[in-house]
Structures are given as C-alpha cells and as structure tokens.
Computed example of a mutant assay.
Amino acid sequence: MGKLQDKVAIITGGAGGIGQGIATAFVKEGAKVAILDLDEQSGQKVVERLQKHQPESMFIQADLANHDKLKDIVDQVVDKFGKLDILVNNAHASKAKPFLEITQQDLDLSFNTGFYPTFYLMQAAIPHLQKTEGNIINFASGAGIEGHATQGAYAAAKEGIRALTRVTANEFGKDSINVNLIAPIANSPGVQQWAKEEPEYYQQVLENIPMRRFGELEEDIGHAAVFLASEDSSYITGQTINVDGGSVKF
C-alpha cells in the first residue's frame, strides 16, 4: 500500500518537467492521476509510462488559459473516478524581461497560464475536496520570494498564488483541506536548455545553491509533493516549502 493508495489527483503541466516528476511519484505511491497539458503528443507518452504503475492514469489535453473550461475538466475527472483528493497547480508560462520592458502581453501570459488557472481550478476543486478532506499543492518561486531581476511578470503571479494559498488555507482549514506551496529549484528540461545557452550564468546559480545541485524532478520535487499530499502532512497548511537545496533563506 502506497502513501497515496487510491487517491485521485489532478496535476497541471503534467506532460513534462516538474509535473511529470510529480505524476510519476504519485502513481508509484498508488494514486490515480489525471495530467493536464496543452502538449498532446508529450502527454500521451507520459500517460503511457504512468499506466505501467497505475493503469487508470489519464491525460486530458487542456489550454489552461481557457478559464471557462476548467470547471468542466474537474467535473470530468470526478465523473471518471467518483471523487477528487489532490489538486496540483504546477503549470505556468512566462517571459523574463527587465522591469521597464514588461508589457501587458507579458503580464497576461503569466497570469493567464499561472495565477488564473490556479484560482479557477481551486474554486472548482474545493467542493469536491471538502468531501474527501483533500489537499491542494500550489507552486511558488524564489523569483517572487526574493525578487529576482527580470522576473517581474512571473514573480507577481507567483506571489499572487502564494496569497491565494494562505487565504484558502485559512478559510478551509475547518474542512481539513490542506493548502500548501512548493518553491522548487529543479533540473527540468528548461533548466537543461538554459545551461546550454547561458553556461556561465547557470554555473553562477549552481554555485549559489548550498547543496551544489538542482533538484531531481521525481526524487526531490515529486517526493516533496507526495509528502504534502499524504497523511504525513495532515497538520501542515498555508506553508511555503522551499525544495531548493537551501537557496532561499528566511
């Protein structure tokens, strides 16, 4: 019996990177996982791998910027599995730019793919999570916590998500719904590409991580998500868990 045996989870951005790592960790602990992603080809490949551990794993192609459809997606998962236990809001797209160059389009990209999907999926999921005393895992970032240069649009959306997390943790604690955040540094495909394009900057960031490595998608970030989604964290809510090798200190 795994720590998430027969739990039902929705994971956004599950076709790659951190989302894929979390989905893999979840199914290995017995969860039934629905991964949401715009990339159908990658999503189908990932769900085939997940089904080796949990045959009921499913992929839903979704444009998270189409906010009117998000409740329907939650209902689709509940109709299939009969319940919802875990919501993981991982997906987020943004562009790095100096502050004075940030446009409305840049802000819209960050908020429409990160903040608003998190908001609307939480609204749709919470009535179901009240029935299961479930868990929500949102994603913060050191870019917002520390205010990284060129990350204005991304950091603003991430800090908005942190605010939503604290509010809902306070409102729904009475229903035994746990709402927490992970702020990761991960060895994602995007980071690997960045290392090739800007090796000096990559090395500088790496040297500022006390543990001198980027987190592994499944073993580090995924296992932290398993902890937050399981009974092991039943008395933890409204918290930001920095899974970053010690980078953020406060």
Rank of each mutant, 00 (worst) to 15 (best):
D72V: 08
P127I: 10
G147L: 08
T103E: 09
K83F: 00
S141V: 04
I73L: 11
T118M: 01
I73W: 10
Q76S: 11
A93K: 14
H92I: 09
S110F: 06
T118P: 02
I177Y: 07
E159G: 12
A169E: 05
Y116G: 05
Q104V: 11
E159P: 07
P117F: 03
T165W: 07
L84V: 04
S176Y: 06
S176A: 08
F172K: 03
Q130A: 13
S176W: 04
F139M: 03
Y154F: 08
A125K: 02
D175C: 12
Q123W: 02
L87Q: 08
S94C: 11
V77G: 09
E133Y: 00
V167Q: 12
L164H: 08
V78M: 02
A125T: 00
F172Y: 15
V77P: 03
I145Y: 07
K69P: 01
H92S: 07
Q76R: 01
N112F: 01
K158T: 10
N89V: 12
V74K: 05
A153V: 07
E159L: 14
A157M: 02
G152P: 06
A140P: 07
D75E: 15
G114N: 03
H67I: 09
A143L: 03
H92Q: 14
M122D: 02
E171I: 09
L100N: 11
T168Q: 04
A91M: 13
A65R: 02
V74F: 01
H92R: 08
T165Q: 11
A124P: 07
T168H: 07
F139G: 05
K174A: 13
A157K: 03
I102C: 14
D106F: 05
G152A: 14
G142A: 15
E159T: 15
D75I: 04
D85Q: 09
A163P: 01
K131D: 06
V74G: 00
I161H: 08
V167P: 08
K83Y: 06
D79A: 15
A149K: 14
D175P: 12
D79G: 11
Q105C: 01
S141T: 06
N89R: 11
P98I: 12
A125S: 12
K71V: 02
L87Y: 02
I136W: 12
D79N: 14
F139D: 03
D79R: 04
I126A: 05
E171D: 13
G114P: 05
A93I: 11
L84E: 00
E101P: 06
S110K: 02
I136Y: 12
N112E: 12
A93H: 13
E146V: 14
F172H: 13
D79S: 15
S94D: 11
Q123P: 06
Y116D: 08
S141N: 07
Y120I: 02
L100W: 03
T132G: 04
S141C: 10
T168K: 01
K95T: 13
S176N: 09
E159Q: 15
K69G: 06
A125H: 00
I136S: 14
G142C: 09
L84Q: 08
T118K: 05
Q123H: 09
I161F: 08
A149W: 06
